[in-house]
Design a binder for these strands. Structure first.
Lengths: 167, 167
DNA sequence: ACCTGAACACCGTTCAAGT
DNA sequence: ACCTGAACACCGTTCAAGT
């Protein structure tokens, strides 16, 4: 079991430092100190490696959101700062199809819980809030805003629209 | 010049019907009826092919947004329906780094213009509106919402938050 | 001017063979 | 039980050679 953990740790390291595109089975094997075919004794394939990274990232992200102070504004701030601090992990969770059959049931819902809670359980508002946080972060990480854009101000406008004024 | 257009048309066809991942230079050469190395006489490389698709998609998307009836609600509807009708093109523009050095200057700004106009030229509101439209579409295309989610209602809530009530 | 086969340095994955 | 070299079917790209 420890060998599998070594592999996943190495994969996480590669993705964090060199990006998702750098994650190749041969490169991963090098990092572990073994030849590529050996990986397949511990892991079903690249899919399982990525699914494991998705699960780890999702749990970490959820914890960050759950420990944010109450209020739409600080939840938004927690969302953004986690994503900017872990851009590769955010991409793993968000730009790769979620492998739901390989995830522990409930992790996805757990991530949504803090968002749902902050809008008082209102589904549509929760989804809209989630979408704007994701949209802002995704566009920022994709370098879609002008480099002189005042994104703090944009977040302020966005969050205010969702009832962040009073918080 | 016509051979280059053949190549780009073929690339557009492959991406539209089989998705971005199916776009390989050998596969593209097959579609054109030539061997892969020949492509490089007409095109600098895969990057140029993708940049050309980005430009085409961006122009088409811009035209769709520009011809939407006035108002935040219908602009949102135009955004969503174009993206859902052309998911691969939306991905090309949104999930691949924009190759700005290979794009005609101004196409990116042109796409933003209708959004900026609908919020009366207010930069922060325009960016926030853009983010929520992109966030909703990206999450929907990535299959992130439950399949029974009422996304029309979610869009309504989102658009209302940005002053779509009166329109 | 355009096209080709062969090649290079890569992918993910399988499998027979070794310990 | 774990690891390996060789192989398969792929990538993007280059280049000498042909017409």
């Amino acid at each position: 079991m420890s060998r599998k953990d070594d592999i996943l740790d190495a994969a996480e390291r590669i993705v964090a430092t060199e990006g998702l595109d750098a994650l190749a089975m041969r490169r991963l094997a090098d990092e572990v100190g073994v030849k590529a075919p050996s990986l397949y004794k511990h892991v079903r394939g690249k899919d399982e490696v990525i699914a494991a990274l998705q699960e780890r990232a999702l749990r970490d992200f959820t914890a960050a959101l759950a420990s944010a102070p109450p209020g739409v504004r600080s939840l938004g701030a927690a969302y953004r700062s986690w994503a900017l601090a872990h851009p590769a992990a955010y991409a793993v969770v968000t730009r790769v199809p979620l492998q739901r059959d390989l995830l522990t049931p409930g992790v996805e819902e757990a991530a949504a819980a803090p968002v749902l809670a902050v809008v008082g359980g209102h589904q549509e508002r929760a989804r809209a809030l989630w979408a704007i946080a994701h949209g802002l972060v995704d566009l920022e990480l994709a370098d879609r805003f002008p480099k002189d854009a005042d994104l703090d101000a944009t977040w302020e406008v966005a969050v205010s629209a969702f009832g962040g004024v009073e918080t």
